[in-house]
């Protein structure tokens, strides 16, 4: 097992490298030298010495690979992601809490997706071709077809129109800027349900279908008959064997569900005005605040890669066949 994990982590290195290159490319993509745009935006005249210091720091006069090297080595050795020009603060000051909240939302959504989709998937497979199964299938398809942001808009409209409530945000106004405390955590939890449902709908619909298909596959396998021939009751049989085996692909589905959640939360967060990475990335892209944008893309990607790694390890842990390969 330890070897397996070690191998997976080594595999990660080229992935991380590629991600960092992509993120760096995003930083470099906008035409022109960003210092120039910085200077043009600045209200007061900029001190020439300061500009030279920045040039030196980011290696702007040097070849592109040197710039990349300066950037990435700064991140790895010092946790220095560069400065946000719009906020006039180091990027690292701005991102960690937002990254944490992104993580919290994604994990809660993942839990929601699993808790809802597994029992429904089992029901749908065991009762296949019944009205209940058709209903689940149709609702699932609709869940897959509604874009997150549209669902967010519709739910917000319903809440506004029929309950006179303005939903959105992750905190009540009094807690937005407050320090972390038990009350703030509780406040967060009470706001979490809406984004979790919105983000989780598509994933839940997808996983129900995966679970149903897998379970149908497994139900017709010989080992199920063999266990039945041993005298096991239908319910115990169902949960001990086919459901257990059908869970494996579900765990491996986490490898794409998690990136999809993080990805989807970007847009949903913008619509619902959540304090996650999404809106910050959006604003930074519009303001061409490229170090902030690049860092966000880098970190969000790393986050999903770690999610994928965790799902791989989990899968190896529950499926003894994996480690052998």
């Amino acid at each position: 097992m330890i070897w397996y994990i070690a191998r997976r982590i080594i595999y990660l290195i080229p992935t991380l490298l590629i991600i960092s290159v992509i993120a760096f490319a995003v930083i470099q993509l906008p035409p022109g030298d960003f210092l120039a745009s910085l200077i043009s935006k600045a209200e007061e005249t900029v001190d020439q010495a300061q500009v030279d210091a920045l040039r030196e720091r980011y290696g702007l006069d040097e070849p592109i690979y040197v710039q990349y090297w300066k950037w990435i080595s700064g991140i790895i050795t010092r946790g220095d992601f560069g400065d946000s020009f719009e906020w006039n603060r180091p990027v690292s000051d701005l991102i960690w809490e937002r990254l944490g909240l992104t993580m919290v939302i994604s994990l809660f959504t993942l839990a929601f997706v699993w808790i809802v989709s597994i029992p429904i998937g089992i029901y749908s497979a065991v009762k296949k071709y019944t009205i209940g199964d058709y209903l689940v299938t149709i609702i699932g398809f609709i869940g897959l077809a509604i874009p997150n942001f549209l669902l967010a808009l519709v739910l917000m409209y319903i809440a506004f129109r029929y309950f006179g409530q303005s939903v959105g945000g992750l905190f009540s106004p009094e807690y937005i800027e407050a320090d972390w405390s038990l009350e703030r955590v509780l406040d967060l939890l009470s706001h979490l349900w809406l984004p979790v449902i919105i983000l989780g709908t598509a994933g839940t619909a997808a996983l129900i279908r995966v679970m149903r298909a897998n379970l149908l596959d497994e139900l017709s396998k010989l080992y199920v008959d063999a266990a039945r021939a041993r005298g096991l009751s239908e319910l115990k049989l169902l949960f001990k064997y086919p459901v257990r085996v059908a869970l494996n692909p579900l765990v491996s589905a986490m490898a794409w569900i998690f990136p999809a959640l993080v990805s989807g939360s970007a847009i949903t967060s913008i619509v619902l005005n959540l304090q996650t990475t999404g809106p910050l990335l959006y604003r930074s892209l519009q303001a061409q605040d490229m170090y902030l944008a690049g860092s966000l893309i880098l970190l969000v990607s790393v986050l999903t890669i770690i999610g994928t790694l965790v799902s791989d390890i989990l899968l190896a842990w529950i499926d003894p066949r994996i480690q052998l390969q």
């Binding site: 959006y282 966000l296 893309i297």
Partner: peptide
């Protein structure tokens, strides 16, 4: 393919299309 699939697509698209 694995690398591409493990990336969060929307932030990437956002970054690339903003350019």
């Amino acid at each position: 393919i694995e690398i591409l699939r493990s990336l969060p697509t929307i932030p990437l698209w956002m970054g690339l299309s903003a350019a």
